[in-house]
Design a protein around this nucleic acid. Sequence first.
RNA 1: GCUCCUGUAGUUCAACGGAUAGAAUGCAAGAUUGCGGAUCUUGUGAUCCAAGUUCGAUUCUUGGCAGGAGCACCA
Length: 571
Amino acid sequence: MEQKIKNLIKDALKNLNIEVSNILLEHPEDLTYGDYSTNVALAIAKNIGEKPKHLAEKIAKELKRLNIDATIEKFEVAGAGFINFYLSRKFFSGSVEEILNKGFDVGKNKILAGKKIMVEYTDPNPFKPFHIGHLMTNAIGESLARILEHSGADISRANYYGDVGLHVAKAIYGLLKDTDLQNKAGSHNEQASNIGKAYVLGAEVYESNDFAKKEIDEINKKIYARSNKEINDIYDWGYKVTMEAFEDLYKMLGTKFDFYFPESQMAPIGEDIVRANIGKIFDESDGAIVFKAEKYDPKLHTRVFITSQGLPTYETKEFGLTEEKFKTNPSMNLSITVTANEQADYMKVVIKAISLINPEHEKKMLHITHGMMRLEGGKMSSRRGNVITGESLIRDTIALVKEKMDTRNLDEAEKNKIAEAVSVAAIKYSILRSQIGSGIVYDVEKSVSIEGDSGPYLQYSYARANSVLEKAQKQNILPDFEKLPEEIFEIEKLLYRFPKVVLRSSSLYEPHHIANYLIEIARAYNSFYGNNLIVSKDDPISSYKVALTYAFTFVMKTGLYLLGIEAPQKM
RNA sequence: GCUCCUGUAGUUCAACGGAUAGAAUGCAAGAUUGCGGAUCUUGUGAUCCAAGUUCGAUUCUUGGCAGGAGCACCA
């Protein structure tokens, strides 16, 4: 449709002997301005030396002479020189029919067809708590992965985790000091939670107590060397249960990773590359191997790649990770890493270094950063340990959802499943509703109690539409396009725009456009629902309203899927 | 001190350089003998400041002010 209108405008301009390479056609924000709008007259008026409005009138006149089919109801000149197009009843019923044909494939496009893209996100470390920052990265990464997939990309999901390092030593120190925390009686979630506590304990004394600090450094060396049986046993157990606990969370959050990259294996790969380039790209400074990025870009800074003690830093490991990613996926077109924005500058330095060694890799790397997730009450730092864990946040949210739920025809298992889906929706929607760059303040109470701008509201709209369809099925009213209403409902004017919203989210790597769009269609559908009796034997257009309801459910469920949110039939 | 990000209704967020700056929530008023009241309808209310570019700036540029993040052996 869009192309059709563009061609029409092009033809009209040609008749006026005007050549324009790029015609901007957009959906006006305000539906009263029509379904499509172009500003060509405004854009070219100056070059041609005419008043925009006058030129718009001329173009409109020319459009009128062209053969326009029945999908366009009318068009008119408005404002400073816009030409607005109003689509017809026929177009909208056709678009609803198209959505029904596509089903859950609605909104798919092929702009990334044939592209292999890896998305790395979440990245929690074994032995450390999975905190709400990980939850945020996961929500964003999973949504991006699904959106890009919907655009035809061949997506793989990757997880990078610190299986060795000081944080492990801190946790093991804690476990050695407080052996109760080694209790293996509970579920792996409970055991992982104890290990998290042990980490907090170790992290605290590392800062405050020099003696403990030395002890932890010793443990760290023993972990690397695997020289102590007791430490090895604790390590193997702790590694296993914390990783298992993460998998439980991923399952609940709807993520399945294809690749796991452990830091311990990335480090030597990176170290080889760094050491091979000392004197060329890397310099020695105070006994450490550093990269002076400011030599190449004044906005960057120097970072240590190998410490004066000879240990590779995170920078070097990232180097190895990049190498490994491209090695395991030779034909990869793009490697996306999602992290919090505190790593933005650090990553720029690393990527700069990579560009000097392997410019091909650098061109295919994209770092997407997001703001902090905060709760009422301020800061959190995983190093200091005063964190809110992802699991506790979900648990608290579930408790609140259960209080609010209408439990009439549900058994306990079903109820739990739905409460879980609603809670995950509440959290994910709070994260994905706004631009990912800036931080969010998450208020558990509000995320579920807010009406009208929340994940649960979207799910509720979907579930209610499903009830309508159930009733229609019972009365044997099937979707049909024979008899059409005269009125064009707002919901119809929004539903056909879904593919364009997906396209936008996908090309800008911004999930929030979909979140905002879903709120719009939920509101429009609820309004339609409130003002119309949809299922009615006596109403000749009931079949069309049922078709419209089906279309809404397809778009809503697909949209929620792209945000990583489940849409239960009932709730 | 330097670098990056963000400043929009009371609050939380939108707006590919375009029209009367959209929603949600809050507040005020109203609807429901129908399909799920976690609903619907109406009203209320905002671009941090100052210059510049442009036919047109919330958007781009510069300078302030305010908040967040980062800046050498942590990740």
